Simulated scan of single mutants.
Amino acid sequence: MAELTIKEIEKKLTSIQDEKDEFLKDCEQDTRKGVQALVQRWKKNKAEEKALEQQYKDMTQYEQALYKKGYKLIAGVDEVGRGPLAGPVVAAAVILPQDAYLPGINDSKKITEQKREELFKQITDCAISIGIGIIPANVIDDVNILQATKQAMKKALLSLSEKPDHLLIDALELPIEIPQTSIIKGDSKSVSIAASSIIAKVTRDRLMVRLSNDYPQYGFEKHMGYGTAYHLEALKKYGITNEHRRSFAPVRELIEYK
């Protein structure tokens, strides 16, 4: 070991996967502080990797149970944008292959924008099929947000290139002739729902950024249409756009006040 530099050891450790590897054991015996720091970093990275593997395994329990029953094409379904004062509600349906591995996947609200973008690419690269459903503000006003959400989900399912044989849906049931399981907080319990949550979130955020080019004074790219202090102040100052949901209280109250 002494003949190897710390830089050389660092490079070699990157290829080590097994905790019982002889080279790793030799490193543990090396008294150099730099080598000990490398060993500790390797162990920390390994522990994080194992935790992600376990988390992913836990989040596939619904899917694995359905695979055992003979289902093959399981679609996760979720939406984003029920709460904002402006912009559409967006739903996604995602069918993942049985051997998919997406470490770090979770409810889109629980991960950073950078991680969402990374996972968005990984999901689109590996998914069997992805469907998107977008329902605009005027329809939300006409039918209410719950019905608009269901419409977006049905639209997402109908745009899949493969017909799923079972649905895993976050907290809702759909009037559609496909067997389905509704899971409360499903976007943190099922990889399929989490994947659809990420696809829907990134898709909607990109739409809101594009809308900010048409309506720069509202700051849609910052708050994605949610009722922040900045957004409410802009509404009072500049009025209501076609992208605003007139049935939602802060917008409705502004109309009534005027």
Rank of each mutant, 00 (worst) to 15 (best):
residue 17 Q to I: 01
residue 41 R to G: 01
residue 39 V to I: 10
residue 26 D to R: 15
residue 24 L to G: 09
residue 17 Q to R: 14
residue 25 K to E: 12
residue 37 A to Y: 09
residue 45 N to H: 10
residue 53 E to P: 00
residue 56 Y to H: 08
residue 17 Q to T: 07
residue 23 F to G: 09
residue 32 R to Q: 09
residue 49 E to D: 11
residue 17 Q to S: 07
residue 49 E to P: 02
residue 43 K to G: 02
residue 48 E to G: 00
residue 36 Q to G: 04
residue 32 R to N: 01
residue 50 K to G: 06
residue 44 K to N: 13
residue 48 E to A: 15
residue 46 K to P: 00
residue 56 Y to L: 11
residue 31 T to R: 12
residue 53 E to M: 04
residue 47 A to S: 07
residue 57 K to I: 00
residue 56 Y to T: 03
residue 17 Q to L: 12
residue 58 D to C: 03
residue 22 E to I: 13
residue 50 K to C: 03
residue 55 Q to M: 04
residue 40 Q to S: 13
residue 50 K to V: 12
residue 54 Q to I: 05
residue 40 Q to K: 15
residue 31 T to V: 00
residue 48 E to C: 03
residue 27 C to Y: 05
residue 21 D to K: 12
residue 54 Q to S: 07
residue 36 Q to Y: 04
residue 41 R to F: 06
residue 17 Q to V: 01
residue 41 R to T: 10
residue 52 L to C: 01
residue 57 K to R: 15
residue 25 K to Q: 14
residue 55 Q to V: 02
residue 49 E to T: 05
residue 53 E to A: 02
residue 58 D to V: 05
residue 18 D to W: 07
residue 19 E to C: 00
residue 59 M to R: 13
residue 42 W to S: 08
residue 51 A to E: 15
residue 21 D to Y: 08
residue 28 E to Q: 12
residue 42 W to I: 10
residue 45 N to D: 14
residue 27 C to R: 11
residue 22 E to W: 03
residue 48 E to T: 04
residue 18 D to P: 03
residue 25 K to N: 13
residue 58 D to Y: 12
residue 40 Q to I: 04
residue 21 D to M: 05
residue 33 K to A: 08
residue 50 K to H: 11
residue 17 Q to E: 09
residue 38 L to K: 08
residue 55 Q to H: 04
residue 33 K to Y: 04
residue 33 K to F: 12
residue 30 D to T: 05
residue 29 Q to M: 11
residue 37 A to P: 01
residue 47 A to C: 01
residue 39 V to M: 09
residue 24 L to F: 12
residue 36 Q to S: 08
residue 19 E to A: 07
residue 27 C to K: 08
residue 39 V to A: 13
residue 26 D to P: 02
residue 30 D to E: 06
residue 55 Q to T: 04
residue 29 Q to V: 00
residue 60 T to V: 07
residue 18 D to G: 03
residue 48 E to K: 15
residue 56 Y to F: 14
residue 57 K to F: 13
residue 53 E to S: 02
residue 49 E to Y: 06
residue 44 K to P: 00
residue 31 T to E: 05
residue 49 E to F: 13
residue 51 A to M: 08
residue 24 L to V: 03
